[in-house]
């Protein structure tokens, strides 16, 4: 059972992390290529505070707080630059974060931080905590989606300028999306640190940011069930793909590509096509 518990915990944390990005990119339309930064901030906060003697549960809100605060600052960038400029700016934030961590001895530098632990929970208990947090976040996402805020997010994603004309305070909502999404990423990071018990700068780089974005897009941008399924599957894929050995990443990359090529709406698109076969995907060139 240990293996299943460990794998389920990993999957659950990935789902939580993907949902947090979905809030920013899926709901509010603000693309981010540096989301792993916030996973990292959450992880480092809990690791350092844990080492300083703070109990595990007390570090969680602090992880979220710092990740969310820095997330809001990065959100300010989204007020200044849009679309592809924003994508590359957030990517830059990611590289800057890793670059800084690498050189700071008090953050463990290249060595990272080892021997994190003492969540005080058994493996099963920790898995339940991760699953519960993820379920709560999924519920929160569904709630936000249906709320006034969710509708504004959607409006911003669809057509920001019209929303401005309508008198909506667009910057406030964008910042809110960034703050909530990055705080949740901080929570995912805190769980990640206690699950792996070891963190280092390489765990929060560009590759991780790209991985989580692909989970969101493969799931179907904005779709909560789609993202949950995609994140769960994609995070377990390397473990299940052991048998294809040498071709593992090749298959992973290929699947990512084929999914986008043949079902650009992601898994959510696939599902809706399956249930409403009449509706065909839009064709033609931009």
């Amino acid at each position: 059972m240990d293996y299943e518990i460990s794998l389920l915990t990993t999957m659950s944390i990935s789902v939580l992390f993907a949902l947090s990005l979905n809030l920013i990119t899926g709901f509010c339309g603000q693309i981010s290529l540096g989301h792993a930064t916030f996973l990292g901030i959450g992880a480092y906060v809990t690791a350092l505070l844990g080492k300083a003697g703070l109990p595990f549960l007390a570090t969680l809100p602090l992880s979220m707080l710092l990740a969310g605060a820095i997330g809001a600052v990065v959100g300010l960038a989204s007020l200044r630059v849009r679309a592809d400029f924003l994508a590359v700016t957030t990517m830059g934030v990611g590289f800057l974060f890793v670059g800084i961590i690498r050189q700071q001895d008090w953050l463990g530098g290249e060595l990272g931080i080892s021997g994190i632990g003492g969540s005080g929970l058994s493996k099963t208990g920790f898995m339940l905590l991760a699953l519960l947090s993820t379920a709560a976040v999924a519920a929160l996402c569904l709630y936000i989606r249906a709320s006034w805020m969710g509708r504004v997010f959607n409006g911003v994603a669809e057509d920001e300028d019209t929303m401005r004309v309508l008198g909506i305070d667009v910057p406030r909502y964008k910042l809110a999306a960034f703050a909530i999404g990055t705080a949740l990423a901080g929570l995912a990071g805190a769980l990640y640190a206690h699950h792996l018990q070891f963190i280092g700068p390489d765990s929060f780089g560009f590759v991780e940011s790209v991985t989580v974005l692909s989970m969101v897009v493969v799931g179907g941008i904005g779709s909560v069930p789609g993202v949950v399924i995609a994140a769960a599957l994609l995070s377990a894929l390397p473990a299940w793909f052991q048998f294809i050995g040498d071709y593992k990443l090749l298959v992973y990359g290929g699947l990512l590509f084929l999914m986008m090529r043949f079902s650009p709406g992601g898994m959510a698109g696939l599902m809706s096509r399956f249930f409403n076969p009449v509706q065909t995907s839009a064709k033609g060139e931009r």
């Binding site: 794998l7 699950h195 070891f198 473990a239």
Partner: peptide, 21 residues
């Protein structure tokens, strides 16, 4: 033999599998 891609994240399930399974 398991491939860990030199990533800590992949090594945790692998080590668990080696031990438990």
């Amino acid at each position: 033999i398991y491939d860990d891609q030199a990533a800590p994240k992949e090594a945790v399930p692998i080590a668990t599998k080696l031990v438990a399974k």
